[in-house]
Write a protein that binds this DNA or RNA. Structure first.
Lengths: 124, 124
DNA sequence: TGCTCATTTCGATATTTTCGAAAATGATAA
DNA sequence: TTATCATTTTCGAAAATATCGAAATGAGCA
């Protein structure tokens, strides 16, 4: 409320207003996309979902087969598949009672592989 | 226990043993690395940490400046910095009382940018 | 000694994740 | 129709995790 003497004492005196301002300005471009990017990474931050993506590298699979690869129930598997499908990374195809899933983006898989290499390189 | 008539009725009859076996075999190569990869993505699955990485694109910054960019306390900022440092993505440098952080890997930033492009492309 | 920037620990809170159980869906077959 | 089967969905609960403030600690500097 009082505008008297608060202005000339900064709570955190070390910071460089100019530098901070410039960086905030620069971030503005990407800032809107960062939550999306973070969500993308959260989605990939799970071993089972990574396994799903890699399992589908060569060909489509039915839910049941994927469940066996993961060692999960079909319900749990279906849930993970839905998360990937909702974001558009997987596509499903009905064939009678069966449902087959396949990758909807080759680029995703190559991104995974690139990142895997980055890690391997980092760990020697 | 009884081996009489259990063998010919499969609890989950739809799956293709051969296919599953082949995929599990193929996954063996990468499987050991998948938890690492998942952890890597978990680390990146946070807007503040992404902001930190992007803020450091051009030059090092002190904790206090980073805290201002993020709008967090220095304690909270320091915590996030530690997570990135512990994984080897950031390096710190002491200069008097101040501590400066910088990127320890150019490749990480380019991976980020690649993934961001992948998303932009996906979203039209 | 006192001050400052940063780190660390502790802990509370909030959020998220994961997945089982069970009901619902939707296709097929008898 | 009725039964069956593969999958999906909803609900919910347990567990794991994240986030961050407060306060104690370090470490440099005057």
């Amino acid at each position: 409320m009082s505008q008297s003497n608060a202005a000339d004492t900064c709570q955190i005196p070390c910071f460089d207003q100019d530098k901070v301002g410039k960086i905030q300005k620069k971030l503005l471009n990407d800032e809107a996309r960062l939550p999306e990017l973070a969500e993308f990474y959260k989605l990939l931050g799970n071993t089972n979902r990574l396994k799903i993506l890699m399992s589908l590298a060569d060909s489509e699979l039915c839910v049941c087969d994927i469940a066996h690869v993961l060692g999960l129930s079909t319900a749990a598997t279906s849930h993970q598949l839905k998360l990937l499908r909702d974001k558009g990374w997987l596509k499903m195809r009905n064939d009678g009672k069966m449902v087959y899933y396949r990758l909807n983006s080759v680029d995703l898989l190559s991104a995974l592989k690139t990142d895997l290499k980055l890690l391997q390189q980092k760990l020697g």
